[in-house]
Each structure stands twice: as C-alpha cells, then as structure tokens.
Nucleic acid binder design. Structure first.
Lengths: 211, 211
DNA sequence: TGGATCTGGCAAGACGTCCTGCCACAATTG
DNA sequence: CAATTGTGGCAGGACGTCTTGCCAGATCCA
C-alpha cells in the first residue's frame, strides 16, 4: 500500500494535491454561484470532472469543502491587501484606499468570491469562528496602521471603540459590496472604492480623535 | 367541502389562522436557533404540536415558511421603529437614537430575531428581493428624516451617496448587532446603542454636508 | 341520538443523497 | 511482456425527507 508510483511524471502526492485543488475549484464555482445549500458530493465531483470516490480522499464531509473554499478566498484576499498596503505611499488615506481598492477589485472581479466571502459563511455555524478570526485580522491591520500613524499609545487606548468601529466598517463594506454585485447599488466601481475609503477614513479619524 | 363549522367556539378560518400562526412561531424557534438549513416539515409540525398534514394547509414549501418568518420579524421591527421615531423629540440625533435603540432592543431581547433578520435571509435567494425592499424602506426612512431636518431639496440631492451610505450603515448595524449577540463584541447594550447612534449621525451629517 | 365534520396518528411510496464496493481498463515498472 | 498500481464508471443498500392517503376517535349540529 505504501508503494507510490509516478504517473504522467507526477508523484502520487502531487496527483492527490491536484485532485484536491480541482475539488476546491469546483467548490468555488458551485458555492459561489448556487450556494452551499446546493452543494452535493456528486455535483462537486462532476464539476471537477473527477470520480466520486476521490471526494473522500480529500474531504470527510461537504462542510470541509466549504471551509477549504472560504480559506482559499481569504488567503487570496489577505495577500492582495497586504501587498497593496505595502505598495501604497506612507499616508493614512492612501494606505486605506489601497487596501479597500485591492479588496473590492479582487472580490468584484469574481462575484463568486464576494458570495463566498460575505454571504455563504454567515449561515454556516462552522465558519463563525473563522469569520471572527478574519474580523480580528482586520482589526489588527487597522490597529497596526493606527500604531504607525498615531503612535502606540493611541492605538492601545482605542480599545473597544476600535473593535466596534472595525466591525461596523467591515459590515458596511460587506453590505455595500454585495449590494453592488447584486446590482442594487448603481454606481461605478471607482465610486464604490472612493466612497468606501471616505467613510473608512471618516470613522477611523473620529474614533482616534475621540479617545 | 364548503361547509365550515365552529369548533371550540372558533370558526374554521380562525382555526386555520391559529394553526398557521403556530407554524410561524415554530418556524421562528427553529430558524432562529438552528437555522433554515435544519428546517424540516416534520420538525416544524412537531415543534408546533400540529399534525404534518396541516403544514400543506398553510404552506406549499419550507421556503414559504422562511418568507413568513422573515416578514413576521420585519413587521415587528418596522412597527417598533416607526413608533419610536414618532415618540422621540424633534431633533436629528434624538430621532436616530430612538430608532436605533428600538431596533437593537427588539432584536437583542430575542436573539432568534437577530438571526432571522440578518443571518438566515442572506443565503436564501428568495429573500434577496425582500432584503432589498427592507433596505429601501430604511433609506426612505432616513430620507424622510433628512427631508424634515434639511429640507426636501437636500434630501433629493443626496442621491446615490445616500443609497451608498444607507447600505453601509445598515451593514454596520447588522454586523455589530450579530457580533454582539454572538458575544464577540464585549460592551454593554447601552454602549452598543450609543456608538451605533454616534456613527450613524457622523455618517449622515457627512453625507448631507458634502452634497 | 345520529350524521357530518374536524383532528391526530401513522404508513408507505417516491425521491435525492450518501457512501462503499466491485470491476474493467489504462499506465507504469522491472 | 507480465505484474502491479492508478483510474473511471457504476450499482446498490442505507438513510432522511417529502407528500399523500387512510382510519379511528373526538366534536359539533340538527
């Protein structure tokens, strides 16, 4: 059983990983367009052009697929945001705008990802903890920025006001982005980015200023 | 078949309505605590202490139950908000605070309603249109307030900025409220109301002032 | 009191999904 | 070439839910 053999020039582990990636990609398609409720083992494997048997090679339940799909999108998002912040000029509004633009561009370029990031995880109990983690990362990012521009003592003193404001901003971004993707918010994407940045800076300045 | 007879002093239509109400109440319990995904015909009827046969008397599918449950909570919410606004003193911040306090108190007194209002409908395609309606009502309420305090021409000129800000505030309220109910936001309810009001007024003033 | 109506309980077929097991064929190694 | 290993396809039992139908008992009206 332990004898693994190369096939088509790729090792057994590489083939495994490849199949898993195909399943995750199929999951992005199904969950991102039809929703987690319509995800079935058969549908996923047929979308991935893979045998049903291989589902159980990589996952024990369809919920694990949801986790993997969510993590996949979050990893892309984090990478994009971190890179954008690093590349932006050293100024509060510029950093904020770069981060928001990166997020909006990534998620609206592929509406499936908007749904995966903001819509589907809400109803899944297993993703609430991850959502909380993402929220905390978001807070940490803001605090790090505040640290840089306002000094460490300010960032620390923000406290629960900061937690509250971060959650509020996150919810606002999520709602406006999903509404925009749905077509319920008829503005250009540039306007979406610009206004999101404006409210972000407005709220952040208000919080820092009121401590 | 058309012959209806009184039973226990109540007419056939009253009995029908009573059974429907029991089913909706059971739906609030199940959807509000376990989620729509776990709603089944059998579970609903057993929760309502009603025979399965009566499910089909009032609903054709479990999705209709979700709609009815959502509408039920939204009706309560609208009533509470409208009453609170009417009773509040004639001043922008007071009106806003009253509306926000009414919403937060109603929804956090019964966490099931928070979930029904903000969490479950997201994943249900059938509720997206209703969500949009609620959003528009929310916008209309704000515009009506703006109309009262800033005059009609200002309210009209807010335009898409207003739509955007309303969606942003709605998302912020939803996110902070659900986080608070989950226990991820450790502040008092008074603080939750106060800070929500503060950001609301901040954003609203900013939008009106920047037109 | 008798006949009509309402109610709760249950059963059974239909349906979709899950998960495992089996088999034939393809590809690789020695 | 032969033996081994990987792969695709499919079938079928288990399971849960849906939906309709039937029946016995309770309730009401004449």
């Amino acid at each position: 059983m332990a004898s693994s053999r190369a096939y088509g020039g790729v090792s057994a582990e590489q083939r495994r990983a490849h199949r898993r990636a195909a399943l995750v990609a199929a999951g992005v398609e199904i969950i991102g367009t039809q929703g987690y409720a319509r995800l079935t083992v058969g549908g996923l494997c047929s979308q991935a052009a893979l045998n049903e048997r291989y589902f159980y090679e990589s996952f024990a339940s369809s919920e694990e697929v949801l986790l993997a799909v969510f993590d996949e999108v979050m990893a892309e998002l984090t990478t994009a945001i971190v890179a954008a912040i690093a590349a932006a000029p050293d100024e509060t509004r510029a950093k904020a705008r770069a981060a928001i633009a990166a997020a909006i561009e990534l998620l609206t370029d592929d509406p499936r990802k908007t749904r995966i990031a903001f819509v589907e995880p809400l109803a899944a109990p297993a993703l609430n903890s991850r959502r909380a983690d993402v929220g905390r990362s978001f807070v940490a990012l803001i605090v790090a920025q505040a640290h840089q521009f306002y000094g460490p003592e300010t960032a620390l003193r923000i406290g629960s006001w900061g937690d509250f404001a971060a959650a509020h901003l996150l919810g606002g971004l999520a709602e406006t982005m999903t509404a925009w993707v749905r077509g319920d918010l008829v503005i250009s994407r540039e306007e979406l980015i610009e206004r999101s940045t404006e409210l972000f800076v407005l709220v952040a300045d208000h919080v820092v200023g009121s401590v």
